[in-house]
Each structure stands twice: as structure tokens, then as C-alpha cells.
């Protein structure tokens, strides 16, 4: 089985991530819980336009983060990330 990618880069998710974390996340990085790859969130593979936003690891294509907006709730699953780190505010 081969996989055909159909994604945007993680910058396409910048608005959703800023809404969620309250700050610009384009300089944030994280580590994939599945394969250990460390990457900037801007380098992740973003699948948008479906029922929710999905960020996948550029190394193993595993799910790093999922985000769903309903009219009344926001759901976040970041269980595919060991951690997220970003520069501290000056």
C-alpha cells in the first residue's frame, strides 16, 4: 500500500492554532509520539476542509493533533505529540 499525500503545510493551520493557544504558533515545535520526529508545527502536514483539522507527522504520517469546532464547543486532541515548545515571550 502506498500513500498519496493531499495536504497543506502546517502554516495553513496557523489561524486555528492561534485561536486555540492564544499566540502565534508558527515558531512552535513538537515531537511525534509515534516516531520521535521533531518538527516545527509549520512543517506538519495539515488536512483541512473536512469535519475537523488534522495535523500529521511529516515523518510517519501519524496523527499529531486534531481540532474540531462546533457552534458551541472546541475539541482538541494533541495526543500524538509528546510535547510542544515555543520561544518564551520576551
Amino acid at each position: 500500500m502506498t500513500l498519496t499525500p493531499d495536504f497543506l503545510d502546517g502554516n495553513a493551520a496557523a489561524g486555528d492554532l492561534e485561536f486555540l493557544f492564544g499566540t502565534d504558533m508558527t515558531m512552535a515545535s513538537g515531537r511525534c509520539r509515534g516516531c520521535g520526529e521533531q518538527m516545527m508545527l509549520a512543517q506538519t502536514h495539515a488536512y483541512l476542509g473536512g469535519p475537523g483539522m488534522v495535523l500529521r507527522c511529516p515523518g510517519c504520517e501519524g496523527v499529531l493533533l486534531r481540532l474540531v469546532h462546533s457552534p458551541t464547543q472546541v475539541w482538541l486532541d494533541a495526543g500524538g505529540l509528546d510535547y510542544v515548545t515555543m520561544p518564551a515571550p520576551a
Binding site: M1, T2, L3, T4, P5, D6, F7, H45, Y47, G49, G50, P51, G52, V54, R56, E61, V63
Partner: peptide, 13 residues
């Protein structure tokens, strides 16, 4: 017929 995916499209032999 919109195409919406949550991940890469698998090519299954």
C-alpha cells in the same frame, strides 16, 4: 463531489 480527507489517500493493490 467534494473530496474531504483526514489523511493521505492510500493506494491499495
Amino acid at each position: 463531489f467534494p473530496v474531504l480527507s483526514a489523511g493521505p489517500t492510500p493506494a491499495v493493490d
